[in-house]
C-alpha cells in the first residue's frame, strides 16, 4: 500500500473514530462527577479486608485473578524478548574493554543514589498494602536502581555485581509463588486467590491479608523480569558483535 493510500485510509478511519469518540464522551458522566459506583463498592471491601491502600486491594485482592494474568503477560514478554535478543549463530559474545569515561559528578551522584534508590524500592514493595506503592512500582524502582551502577560506573562493574541467573530464577519463582498462593487460597477459602490470611489491624504493616504477600512476590518477579530484560538489551548492544565487523 502506498503512503498516500495509507494516509487516506487513516484519515477516513481516524475521522470516524474522532466523531464517534466525541459523541461517546458527551454521554459519559460529567468529568469530576461525585458518582462512582465501583468506588462505592471497592472502598468498603478494601477496608473490610484491612487494606489501607485501596488501589492495592483492587489489584491484589478484588481483582487478583486479573493481576495473575497481567504478571503472566510480564513473564511471557520477558521470555520472548530474551529469546529474540540472544546472540545468533553469526554473532559472538565478547568482553569489551572498559571504555566508559564518566564525569566525576555523575559517578558521585550515581553511587550516592544507588543505596537510596534500593531502600526506596524495598520500602515501596514492603508497604504496598498500606501506603502508595506496591510490587509493580517498587520492583521497577529496584531494577532501575541496580542499573545506576552502569550510569555511575561501567558495564563490567554492573556485570560483576548483578548475576543474571539469580534474577532469572527470581522472575520465575515470583510468578510461580503467585500461583501457589492462589492455590492455597483455593484450598482454604474455596476461591482461587482467596484471602486466607488474618486481616490484622487497619494501617499496620502486618495487615491486609494476602495483599501484602502478593505484592511482595510480584515485586520479586518484576525485579527479576526487568533486570533480565535490560541485561538482554545491554548484551545485545555492548558485548555482541557480528563476526565480520
Amino acid at each position: 500500500m502506498s503512503r498516500l493510500a495509507r494516509l487516506l485510509v487513516f484519515a477516513f478511519g481516524g475521522g470516524v473514530m474522532a466523531v464517534a469518540f466525541v459523541l461517546a464522551v458527551l454521554d459519559l458522566p460529567h468529568f469530576g462527577t461525585h458518582e462512582h459506583l465501583y468506588r462505592d463498592l471497592a472502598v468498603p471491601a478494601a477496608v473490610q479486608h484491612g487494606t489501607a491502600n485501596v488501589v492495592s486491594a483492587v489489584n491484589f485482592d478484588q481483582r487478583a485473578v486479573d493481576t495473575f494474568g497481567e504478571e503472566s503477560i510480564l513473564i511471557a514478554s520477558v521470555v520472548g524478548a530474551a529469546a529474540l535478543l540472544r546472540p545468533s549463530s553469526e554473532e559472538t559474545e565478547q568482553r569489551v574493554p572498559d571504555l566508559g569515561r564518566t564525569l566525576e559528578g555523575t559517578r558521585l551522584i550515581g553511587y550516592v543514589l544507588l543505596p537510596v534508590t534500593l531502600v526506596l524500592g524495598v520500602d515501596l514493595v514492603l508497604h504496598g498494602g498500606t501506603t502508595p506503592g506496591g510490587g509493580f512500582q517498587g520492583g521497577v524502582i529496584l531494577a532501575t536502581g541496580i542499573h545506576l551502577l552502569y550510569v555511575a560506573g561501567s558495564y563490567p562493574a554492573l556485570d560483576r555485581l548483578r548475576p543474571v541467573t539469580m534474577f532469572e530464577i527470581a522472575d520465575s519463582v515470583g510468578a510461580a509463588a503467585f500461583a501457589v498462593i492462589g492455590l492455597i487460597g483455593l484450598a482454604s477459602t474455596g476461591a482461587f486467590l482467596g484471602d486466607f490470611l488474618p486481616y490484622g489491624d487497619f494501617g499496620q504493616i502486618l495487615s491486609t491479608g494476602t495483599v501484602q504477600v502478593l505484592s511482595g512476590v510480584v515485586g520479586v518477579e518484576v525485579v527479576g523480569g526487568m533486570v533480565v530484560l535490560l541485561s538482554s538489551f545491554f548484551e545485545q548492544e555492548i558485548t555482541v558483535r557480528a563476526e565480520d565487523s
Binding site: R39, A42, V43, V47, A52, N53, V54, A57, V58
Partner: peptide, 18 residues
C-alpha cells in the same frame, strides 16, 4: 487519593480506585 492511614480515615470521598 484512595489510600487511607492514621490522618485520612476511611471514607468514600476519594477518586475511583478501580
Amino acid at each position: 487519593a484512595p489510600v487511607f492511614g492514621s490522618t485520612t480515615k476511611p471514607n468514600k470521598d476519594v477518586v475511583d480506585p478501580v
